[in-house]
Computed example of a mutant assay.
Amino acid sequence: SPEEFYRSPLLILQAIHPDWQGYFATQWASLLQGEMPPYYEYQIIHPAGGVRWLNQRNVLVRDAEGKPVAIEGIVTDITGRKEAEEETRSAHEGLDAINRIIMACASTLDAEEILNKVMDEALRITGLEGGTICYVTPGQTLHIAAHRATSRATIEDLSTHAIKIGECLCGECARDHKPLILRDREAVLKFSTREATRGEDIRFHAAFPLITGQRCVGVLCIFTRTDKKPAEQSLQLLETVSAQIAMAIDNARLYQKSIQHAIHLEEKVRQRTGELEAKNAELERFNKLFVDREMKMVELKERIKKLEGQVGSGK
């Protein structure tokens, strides 16, 4: 209360939040030198508990010799404003993150490029160091397509052994069509059925199904081997953009199939063209033989006619 500060002007030093002790010490040293900004903004620990933001507007009072002797100020609780600013900042960061992923998905039809961009953005959003993206194959197994900070044992396991839908961390997510968030080592081990995965010291793991229509086309996973945990908002962002990622992957795969189909058709056309050219060459050869035969027949008839004429004239 104001009365408490009147009785003990330095009471504020006891209330300052630990994160702001250094800032306040610097400002206090400047104050003793006669330097003071027009206002401070800092955090305190409220006696009732919780952290509050304060804005302190200042007027430095000096004596006749110009030395600072007192501070006159007005302190305002600005916690509500700071919380609103933080919400606005977080919302802007979230929109920026969503936009980056959408742009990554829309900038190319190369599936590998899309997956690598999405993987990097997912780790950037969450602040974690590791992750994987797996395709769901036509045989309903998972195939690793992109990875970061993943152990060699896990990469080899995912690459050489078919992981079925419903098996291990990613398989559970793909089967249930919903995110699987494992917040500690114990939870990770509970869902880890692969020896390679159990051997990694993963302490947080989140898997997001990539669904378009009613189909799961893949699974995006992020993880950490540290005690760091991502903000809930970052996980919500990944869940929000998972459908966009799924559509981009599906479109890229369809594009690749169309390219392969076009190449196949081009090869078929080339083969058919070669066959037709060979047939035409054969027809031309037979036609030439026929023409030569006809010409010889005409020549033979003319010779016979000439001989008949000679016989008839007695020559």
Rank of each mutant, 00 (worst) to 15 (best):
E4C: 05
P9F: 01
I12L: 12
D19L: 06
W20D: 15
W28A: 13
G34D: 08
M36L: 15
Y39M: 11
Q43R: 15
V51E: 10
V51H: 05
W53Q: 13
Q56G: 07
V61Q: 02
A70D: 14
E72H: 09
I78R: 09
T79C: 06
T88D: 04
A91S: 08
D96R: 09
I98W: 01
N99Q: 14
R100L: 13
R100D: 14
R100G: 02
A106H: 15
M119R: 13
D120S: 08
E121K: 12
A122S: 13
L123K: 10
I125P: 04
G130A: 15
I133Q: 03
I133G: 03
V136G: 06
T137K: 13
Q140T: 01
I144E: 05
A145R: 15
R148M: 12
L169V: 02
C170W: 00
E172V: 03
D184W: 12
A187Y: 08
R194I: 00
R194E: 04
E195F: 01
R203C: 06
V219H: 07
L237H: 06
L238E: 09
A243L: 12
A246M: 10
M247N: 12
A252I: 00
R253M: 11
E266N: 13
V269K: 03
R270Y: 04
R270I: 04
R272N: 11
R272W: 06
L276F: 07
E282V: 00
E282I: 00
L283F: 13
K288C: 02
M297S: 00
L300S: 08
K301T: 07
G309W: 04
G312W: 08
S313M: 08
S313G: 03
